[in-house]
Design a binder for these strands. Structure first.
Lengths: 171, 171
DNA sequence: TATTTAAGTTTCTAGTTGCAACCTAAAACC
DNA sequence: GGTTTTAGGTTGCAACTAGAAACTTAAATA
């Protein structure tokens, strides 16, 4: 916790090209009041309208509206059950599943800074049973980075740009 | 992208204890419409009321309200400039700076799934100039994890619980 | 002292969100 | 065929959110 914002001037982005930024686009899809809570429920295996309703304590029309929007955004898919064709299942798409790091980062932040007691249950690695690491920022080769280690560079200046951009997982 | 939600049943959390979850608490602080955009501007070095106003294109009263709420939540601090005491600086607190991973995760998601063109400029490691790795989920010893690798465990069952919880950065 | 500036506050307006309660449609079940 | 279940639409109403424009206050500045 030893750094102040003074150290961060490198992180100054040439603002103004707000359309070029992924954040407003992400917020357009996920920025509404219940969206993340619905996503959380979906990650917990909830798939049916009435179950979301009960789990979240949300009004029907709002839930209906949010589910439609999430389906429209490609975050959930809406399909009829094979066995009971009047039941509809809302399930996470790959695009929706890919929101898990963002959701966990937010959640960990809330646990760390807002929740008084240690969170329970704890999200763990199924392989060894240990709690997962805090979501963080890492260099391409796995070093932990903080705000003062970051800088903006123009796409054209990055030597390995195409390879680095295509690479979506660590070695 | 090769997994479906079927693989994820281990991730089912014993719902209901919504107060115990950090996500609603995080959303209470950051869930409002402009909060993340204000945070983004703050990370870009913007500190003054009129600069936020111009950078975001937000109404004065809403900006005033949001800044107050973020200060109340301990995400920004509000202090008078030493040199010009009518100027007020809003600056990120350690709690606010700690939202960077969550913001970047959201932003990377938006870039990956919503933005048509490659994002520019690119956030890079200042040390080697390479783009940062995608924000992801990692085990305590640095293995990349995906949704199907995760499970919930009760706090009491975790052998190294106190040490693991105290540890907030990777070795 | 008068003026300008930064950071609000207030007022008025329109639109959105949210809830409760009721209504509809289609599929399944008897 | 009639009933129940599931998904969700409709209506009415209160609260909140957002924007524009005018007003306020304190501090710097000329």
């Amino acid at each position: 916790m030893g750094y102040e914002q003074d150290d961060m001037d490198k992180l100054r982005e040439p603002l103004g090209d707000i359309a070029q930024c992924g954040l407003p686009l992400a917020l357009e899809a996920m920025g509404e009041r219940w969206s993340f809570m619905i996503l959380r429920a979906a990650f917990n295996g909830i798939r049916h309208f009435e179950d979301f309703l009960e789990a979240l304590g949300i009004a029907r029309n709002i839930l209906s509206n949010r589910l439609s929007r999430l389906v429209e955004a490609g975050i959930l898919k809406r399909e009829h059950c094979a066995d009971d064709r009047r039941r509809i299942e809302y399930r996470l798409t790959p695009k929706g599943l890919d929101l898990l790091p963002a959701m966990l980062a937010l959640r960990q932040w809330g646990e760390k800074w807002e929740l008084g007691v240690p969170a329970n249950p704890v999200l763990c690695d199924a392989r060894d049973g240990h709690p997962i690491a805090p979501i963080g920022i890492f260099s391409h080769d796995g070093r932990a980075l903080s705000a003062e280690d970051l800088t903006w560079r123009d796409l054209s200046e990055i030597e390995t740009a195409p390879a680095a951009l295509a690479l979506r997982k660590l070695p």
